[in-house]
């Protein structure tokens, strides 16, 4: 086992911290998510480590609970996006012909509409609940995964070992999941990291615009929205969730880079 490079360690540590606080939120959050415990926009103190928000809730607790929601929604949406996108992409590449044409043109069509606007339209006519949010985000984003996995798989599908499997008489499912997928995995894993970050940004944006997680539930985008007026008075409450978003994005990216690096230089990896 090689040594883990320092950037990856930093990334792992920060990502781990976020994950831990998300999972252990009920244990470590000092107060409840919508508990009003103090005055409006109190400064940081020993009682409220990061101060209070626009209606006097403890900001640290809000951030921890909000992180839980944000990470949950983003992860679930990434999984949805990934499974749909990569399975469809691999099938399109292997089957080819009109199946590929129909899928690819449909994806082009969806991608032609800006994702955010599409999401806003859909969410404004549907009840905004967490499952709906996850599905809408995941499906919209799966178009990008589809494109990538289809491109990667078409490269692999022309390899002699795929032809050898075909000549052996293997079925499509074997060809896709045993011959192609393992070799397509490393770019896809790196992409998964990227997609996750986009999902974090996406859900934060939606919440900021009021179509994401609904109050009194907390998520980072929502906290920015609630406290944005404070910026005018020099109150940093809105900046803290923004810092959290940035820190998570960067740390996940560092980890994804390392994973890509590691899997592609594995024995028999694509770079030899």
């Amino acid at each position: 086992m090689r040594r883990v490079p320092i950037p990856a360690l930093v990334g792992l540590a920060i990502t781990g911290l976020f994950l831990f606080s998300a999972i252990a939120a009920p244990l470590i959050a000092p107060y409840g998510v919508s508990e009003v415990v103090g005055d409006v926009w109190e400064p940081a103190s020993s009682e409220f480590w990061l101060g209070t928000d626009n209606i006097g809730r403890d900001l640290l607790s809000r951030l921890i609970w909000g992180g839980q929601t944000t990470i949950l929604v983003a992860s679930a949406a990434t999984v949805v996006s990934f499974v749909t996108g990569s399975v469809a992409g691999l099938f399109a590449a292997v089957i080819g012909g009109w199946v590929d044409q129909v899928l690819s043109r449909f994806v082009d069509l969806v991608m032609a509409i800006p994702t955010l606007i599409f999401a806003l339209v859909v969410l404004s006519v549907m009840p905004v609940t967490i499952p709906v949010l996850i599905l809408v985000m995941g499906l919209l984003d799966s178009t990008r995964v589809f494109r990538l996995s289809r491109a990667v798989a078409s490269d692999i599908a022309v390899m002699d070992y795929v032809e050898a499997a075909e000549l052996r008489g293997e079925g499509r499912v074997w060809t896709i999941f045993r011959e192609i997928l393992p070799n397509a995995l490393s770019p896809l894993v790196a992409e998964a990291g990227m997609r996750f970050i986009f999902m974090v940004l996406f859900v934060s944006t939606l919440s900021f615009l009021g179509l994401g997680v609904q109050p009194p539930g907390a998520d980072w985008g929502g906290i920015v929205k609630e406290n944005k007026d404070g910026i005018v008075y020099g109150i940093p409450a809105a900046l803290l969730p923004a810092v959290a978003i940035a820190a998570l994005a960067i740390s996940v990216n560092l980890v994804a880079d390392w994973v890509l690096d590691r899997t592609s230089s594995l024995k028999g990896g694509r770079n030899g």
Binding site: M159, D160, Y161, A164, G169, P182, N183, G268, G269, R270
Partner: peptide
């Protein structure tokens, strides 16, 4: 399947004729 089994093929480029992950 029997037809396929009795007729096998060996390729020029052994590198790409085997799945590198197996």
């Amino acid at each position: 399947r029997e037809d396929l089994r009795e007729l096998q093929m060996v390729y020029q480029m052994a590198d790409v004729a085997m799945n590198p992950r197996q």
